[in-house]
């Protein structure tokens, strides 16, 4: 079974925003720094005014890997993991499984858009090709 993350005050928006179809990223309300993984306090200015904001849910593939090894019982392979530079959140990448395409067809520079897969109380980001 796919392991699930524990929900915490700082990460709940990220893992549950998909319920509303939104990719939620933490930002500092004081210095506007995008914070990922999310934190309670801004690592840049130590402001406690950290808030989650929806971002467009699009981005560009920075890198990827095609996984061929079943690491857990029932894991279906192959699949591609894409590390994507997010639009609207400078410096932030979201790593997620690529769905809806041939795993071997993903390339660096490809533009992507987010979708979500729900398991229990978690909405997992997953990437699809934008075009």
């Amino acid at each position: 079974m796919r392991p699930l993350p524990e929900l915490t005050p700082e990460n709940t928006a990220f893992w549950t925003g998909g319920a509303d179809g939104k990719l939620m990223i933490a930002f500092c309300a004081d210095c506007n720094h995008a914070i990922h993984p999310p934190q309670l306090i801004c690592p840049k200015c130590w402001s406690e005014a950290v808030e989650s904001r929806p971002v467009p849910g699009t981005g560009t593939v920075y890198t990827y890997t095609v996984n061929h090894q079943p690491w857990a019982p029932g894991m279906q392979v192959p699949f591609t993991l894409a590390v994507v530079d997010l639009d609207g959140a400078p410096g932030v990448r979201v790593t997620a499984e690529v769905v809806g395409t041939d795993p071997e067809s993903v390339a660096i520079g490809q533009t992507m858009r987010i979708s979500f897969a729900n398991i229990e109380d978690i909405w997992f980001p997953q990437w699809e090709k934008a075009q």
Partner: peptide, 22 residues
Amino acid sequence: YSYLVPANAMSASNWAGWMATR
């Protein structure tokens, strides 16, 4: 690793793999 393993990036070979791709 809670941002990697649940995303099905379970193994360090995945993490090293995407470094190598880049």
